[in-house]
Amino acid sequence: MGKKRLIQYDVIRVMAMLFVICVHVKLKPFASHRYISSGLYAVFFTCNGLFFMLSGKFNLSKKFDDVSKMKQFYIKNFKKIVIPFIVATLFLALGNMIQNHMTISVFDYFRYYKHYMADVAPYSILWFMYPLFGMLISAPFLAKMLQNMDEKQLKLLMIISLIWVFITENLGMYGYATHMRNFFITSTLVYFIGGYCLDHITYKKLKPVHVILIGLVGLLVTIYIRVKYQFKSAYDISLYYILFTFAVYWLGERFFDIKNHIVISIVETLAKYSFYVYMFHYIILNNVEGHFMTLSPSIHMLIVVILTLALSLAWAMVFNVLIKLLEKFIYKLPLLKNS
């Protein structure tokens, strides 16, 4: 019998997926209220950190006892992540050409696709994939390191990582450029490592109310520094925001364990297709949103998010069938066969 799927992590994944769509809706409620608007953005942008933390939790907990296990891990992720990403970008590049009324021929398409992969995709909503690739390549070696550390060492690693974030990111907000670099846990890798560490550190005296307070302080400081200082990393690599995202994740682990079988079925379906929804939602959103711009921002956002999710999910299911068909001959390659 396979391992029982932990529904709370699917709930976190689905919540992050919805937040991704919300981030990209152009017409948002409370846009004229800077602090409320900043708070909404802060909540929605947890999607990035939550996705990285989920990836870290599951990938860094795998056992890599020998090189063959590492090879299997890389091949599995090549099948599951890289090939769908490449196929998706083929569609997305074509969609960009159509939206921009560009001339489409075989030559023009592949010339544009080269430009798209080098100069468009890394700076679009697909930016997330590029650090994720590095994380997955690093995962077997990081897993070996982390799994051989005791709890005190894990705590020290997280404390140093958070202090490093404050020194290298937050101090810049106050005009202090430290120029410090080369600590190996930087940028979004903090979330990736955090997904593992939060699961392997015990919190004997830590209660949910403490985590709520930590998260609330992190959120309020994030809102303040974003509005007051226009701090560009306020919703990303900032000590305060990381603490807020960690709090959301920690609370989700403990309180999202739903029991209703119908809700569980819906959540599992949405979670199954969340990767494909992430890749395609933006181009669908752009085609949906324009039809509802005359509505009030709150109603507009609700309708646009629901429609974008529904259409993205439908396309994700079609895309999944296409990927399954490609498996029949792509995965017969000697390197991938029987892996």
Rank of each mutant, 00 (worst) to 15 (best):
Ile160Asp: 02
Trp164Cys: 01
Phe183Asp: 01
Ile159Thr: 12
Ile159Gln: 04
Asn182Trp: 15
Ile159Cys: 07
Met173Ser: 03
Gly172His: 06
Met180Leu: 15
Asn170Thr: 12
Leu162Ser: 00
Glu169Gln: 14
Tyr174Leu: 14
Trp164Lys: 03
Ile163Cys: 04
Ile185Phe: 02
Arg181Tyr: 11
Ile185Lys: 01
Phe183Val: 10
Met158Gly: 00
Gly175Tyr: 14
His179Lys: 14
Thr168Gly: 06
Tyr176Trp: 15
Gly175Gln: 09
Thr186Asp: 10
Phe184Ala: 07
Tyr174Gln: 09
Ile159Ala: 11
Asn182Phe: 11
Phe183Trp: 14
Leu189Ile: 08
Leu162Tyr: 04
Thr178Leu: 09
Tyr174Thr: 07
Asn170Lys: 11
Phe184Cys: 06
Leu157Met: 13
Met173Leu: 13
Leu157Thr: 06
Met173Gln: 06
His179Tyr: 13
Ser187Pro: 00
Met173Asp: 02
His179Asn: 10
Thr186Met: 09
Ile159Ser: 05
Met180Ser: 01
Ile160Asn: 05
Ile167Gln: 03
Ile185Arg: 04
Tyr174Val: 08
Thr178Val: 04
Phe166Asp: 05
Arg181Ile: 10
Tyr176Asp: 01
Ile160Ser: 03
Glu169Met: 11
Ile167Leu: 15
Trp164Phe: 13
Ile160Tyr: 04
Asn182Met: 12
Arg181Asp: 12
His179Val: 05
Phe166His: 06
Arg181Pro: 00
Val165Thr: 13
Thr186Ile: 09
Tyr174His: 08
Phe166Cys: 07
Val165Arg: 01
Leu189Gly: 03
Phe183Pro: 00
Thr178Arg: 11
Leu162Ile: 11
Met173Ala: 06
Thr188Glu: 10
Phe166Lys: 06
Thr186Lys: 11
Ser187Gln: 14
Ile160Lys: 05
Gly175Asn: 10
Glu169Lys: 14
Gly172Ser: 07
Leu157Glu: 02
Phe183Cys: 02
Val165Gly: 01
Gly175Val: 09
Leu157Lys: 03
Met158His: 06
Thr168Cys: 05
Trp164Tyr: 15
Thr186Ala: 10
Thr168Leu: 03
Ile163Trp: 02
Thr178His: 08
Ile167Asp: 02
Gly172Met: 09
Ile185Val: 15
Asn170Arg: 08
His179Pro: 00
Trp164Met: 04
Leu162Trp: 02
Phe184Arg: 07
Arg181Phe: 12
His179Glu: 11
Ile163Phe: 04
Thr168Lys: 09
Leu189Thr: 07
Ser187His: 14
Ile167Lys: 04
Ile159Val: 13
Thr188Gln: 14
Met180Val: 12
Phe166Gly: 08
Tyr176Met: 11
Met180Ala: 06
Val165Cys: 11
Thr178Trp: 12
Thr188Cys: 08
Ser187Lys: 12
Trp164Gly: 00
Asn170Trp: 12
Asn182Ser: 13
Thr186Ser: 09
Glu169Tyr: 13
Thr178Ser: 12
Ala177Arg: 15
Arg181His: 12
Ser187Asn: 14
Leu162Pro: 01
